[in-house]
C-alpha cells in the first residue's frame, strides 16, 4: 500500500471533513483541521508503514488534531463550565431518588427497533450540542470512537473517577433533554 498525495483531496477530503464536523460542529475549524491533517501527513509520510489504509492513517492524524481542539476548548471554557454546572439541575433527591419532575417517562419508541423518526433524531442532535464541550468529547470518544477509558483520561486529562461522573452526567442530561423536548 502506497500513499498518493496527488489524490488526497479528491479521495479523502469529504470523508475527513465529515469526520471532523460531526465531532466539533464548526465549519471553519473543521476545514482548517482537514488542511492541517494533509500538511502534517506530508511531513511524516515516512511513518506510513502500509499496515493500514491511507484513509485510516489520515484519520488517525485528524483524530489527534481533534483531541487537541477538545483539550483547548474545554480548558478555555472551564469557568463557563463551572457556572453551567451550578445552574444545572440535579435530577435526584438527597437520598438518591429521582426528583418527581425528573423521573424517566417512556418516549414511545422503546420497543420499536430503530424505527425512529427524523424529528426525534433532530432533537437528539440538538441535545448533543447542548452538552458541555468536555462531556461531549468524552461521550463521543467512548461511545463512537470506542477508545479505551485509559486513553480518554490521558488525552483529555481527566481522572478515572471524573470520567465515570462525566459519562453518567452526560447521559442524564441527554436523556432529560430528550424527555423535555420530545414528549
Amino acid at each position: 500500500m502506497l500513499l498518493n498525495p496527488h489524490q488526497w483531496v479528491s479521495s479523502h477530503a469529504d470523508y475527513l471533513y465529515s469526520f471532523a464536523i460531526t465531532r466539533i460542529n464548526d465549519e471553519d475549524l473543521a476545514k482548517d483541521l482537514v488542511q492541517e491533517t494533509f500538511l502534517a501527513a506530508l511531513q511524516k509520510t515516512g511513518s506510513f508503514e502500509g499496515k493500514s489504509s491511507e484513509r485510516t492513517w489520515l484519520t488517525a492524524i485528524l483524530k489527534n488534531k481533534i483531541i487537541d481542539v477538545y483539550r483547548k476548548k474545554s480548558q478555555g471554557l472551564k469557568t463557563i463550565d463551572n457556572e453551567e454546572k451550578e445552574n444545572r439541575e440535579d435530577f435526584f433527591e438527597e437520598d438518591g431518588h429521582w426528583k418527581a419532575e425528573h423521573g424517566p417517562k417512556e418516549f414511545g419508541i422503546e420497543d420499536k427497533d430503530h424505527l425512529v423518526n427524523k424529528e426525534f433524531e433532530h432533537i437528539l442532535q440538538k441535545c448533543m450540542q447542548k452538552l458541555p464541550v468536555l462531556w461531549k468529547a468524552v461521550f463521543t470518544m467512548k461511545h463512537i470512537d470506542e477508545e479505551a477509558t485509559d486513553t480518554i483520561c490521558t488525552e483529555l486529562k481527566v481522572t478515572a473517577s471524573n470520567f465515570w461522573v462525566i459519562i453518567h452526567r452526560a447521559k442524564l442530561n441527554l436523556r432529560a433533554c430528550l424527555q423535555k423536548n420530545w414528549i
Partner: peptide, 26 residues
C-alpha cells in the same frame, strides 16, 4: 432509564454514521 440509555447510544452511533455521506458539502 436503562432502556432509553441503550437506545440513545445506538441512535447517536447512527447519527454519526449517517453524517459520513460521500458528499459532505465541502
Amino acid at each position: 432509564f436503562q432502556k432509553q440509555s441503550h437506545i440513545i447510544n445506538n441512535l447517536v452511533k447512527e447519527l454519526f454514521k449517517s453524517a459520513m455521506q460521500p458528499d459532505s458539502g465541502l
